[in-house]
Amino acid sequence: MQLIDIIIAVACSLIVLSVVVIAIINKMKGKTSCGCDCANCSGCKSCKNKTSKQNTANK
């Protein structure tokens, strides 16, 4: 196996892993689920975690 093959294999594996891990971390942090930028979204609160949703509902 050439060096370039190893680089390609490692890079592709890292891409898949990082996309999955970042998605899981974002989900756990209650961050955006659509990939958009919350700062500019008029509906960003609807994607936030349950705590903030409940707070809004209680008010």
Partner: peptide
């Protein structure tokens, strides 16, 4: 990639 000698699968 071909010039770098990458394997067929890569």
């Amino acid at each position: 990639l071909e010039s770098l000698g990458a394997a067929e699968w890569a």
